[in-house]
Amino acid sequence: MNYLLDALAWIADPARWPGPDGIATRLGEHLAYSAVGVLIACAIGIPAGWLVGHTRRGRGLAVGLSGAARALPTLGVVTLLGILLGIGLVGPLVAFVVLALPSVLAGAYAGVEAVDPQAVDGARASGMTEAQVLTRVEIPLGLPLLVGGVRSAFLQVIATATLAAYVGAGGLGRYLFLGLKTQDYPQMLAASLLVVALALVCDLVFAALQRVAAPAGVRPH
């Protein structure tokens, strides 16, 4: 319990917040990594997922990819890219995209695929083109699942970004590994608590977004 108080005091110390190595900077870095990694993954994964969901082609590949990604050890990807691309931000960023992509892809295709076939048939019967079926029916109805996929991708990157400090990236993981190296447990604990808080807040924000993303007609409750 003493450690916990020390850790909270560490976080509460106003002197630790400003500056290039301050908590504010590291928190911003951590969020920025997650946002950039997920945005790049979205730019690739969402169109691909929609295409797979709409045409039902390559479904096996998409399912296999998201399954295989679960077996892929994050730390392995981070260290491999760390060696290949050198210490710095490029390696971790590639790792974030690689690890975020399967969730985004799965969310995009699962969302489109889960749309009631009667709604799709109805849209076609009323004369919509394929593009209209996709953009006006399948995408809006599949939005909650897509947001769910982006949500797990974002959390995955928050977790990976913590590990990425091991290969020299910034973010809150810096404090954790600094504490580990100097046997400063309160600092490690403080860093961990900050990451946990960040992850929980982001998860709750995405949970709210997921509810808002459902079109009014199919919203639960």
């Binding site: 077996a71 730390l75 392995g76 260290t79 060696i83 580990l180």
Partner: peptide, 27 residues
């Protein structure tokens, strides 16, 4: 099962032996 096997490796950065040690040593 699959995600547990993958998550065990993370302990290596704290010095807990597993296949994750191949990542930290290798790096």
């Amino acid at each position: 099962a699959v995600s547990t096997v993958s998550l065990v490796t993370v302990g290596a950065v704290l010095g807990i032996p597993s296949l994750g040690m191949l990542f930290t040593d290798g790096f």
